[in-house]
Amino acid sequence: MNGNEITPGQAMQDVFEEFRIDGAVNKVVFRDFNLWYGENHVLKDISVEIKSNIITSIMGPSGCGKSTFLRAIDRMNDIIPECRTSGQVFIDEDNVYAEDVDVYELRKRVGMVFQKPNPFPQSVYDNVAYGVRIHGMANGRELDEAVERSLRMAALWDEVSDRLDESALTLSGGQQQRLCIARALAVEPEILLMDEPCSALDPIATAKIETLMRSLQEKYTVVLVTHNLQQAARVSDMTAFMYIGEVVEFGRTKDLFENPEKELTENYITGKFG
């Protein structure tokens, strides 16, 4: 089909999409958020609203602060001693940076998947069970069920159901990454942050993860950092373009790719830099 031609079916679908995205409620809200590593001002006056139950992708050139942005949501940057912040990040109504926040509860609410698959050097089962055990959420039969449920959600159950006791390091890269997703889902988070989850994977494994992401958006708010423009266009509903610590443009993926408002965005999308 020619890209410019719009069939009635396509138009209906577009309207539906628009409705789905516009109707979504805010899940993660950044308010005048700034972050420094020592003297390095890495996130500058960020104010964005990430919506619930859709996929939002973050793109931008290397070093612009995408990972830092993600890690600001579950305060993973706290680990870095010279890190300072100002402003707020809300999940639902709760300010993540309020003083009385229990960081461990917060991180339980927010799952994270990293660029390089990083399963623990333990069995497949123990990997998925790890967070559940840490938080004392289940044991015995219930734990077995939680593990199975998470592996099914991560579309991995059929491939590993007969090797739960084997080391996770014997799985393929793509399987390892889905295991990491299952591990994150097992603690029943509300938000799933994925930092270039496919960059170490081949196209087939990537396609599997993309399909998986689509299926996850029903239950979760997914935020995806990606270097791959096609991937952002393919899987995400909304896209933010970041440049040297600022969110330059944020909107529906379709709009952002088809007629970007800012010249910087257009240059990036058309491959003039980055």
Binding site: M76, F114, N118, H135
Partner: peptide, 13 residues
């Protein structure tokens, strides 16, 4: 590897 620690901390450990 740092990835192990990150994964564990990100799960709320």
């Amino acid at each position: 590897p740092r990835g192990y620690r990150d994964a564990s901390l990100a799960l709320g450990a």
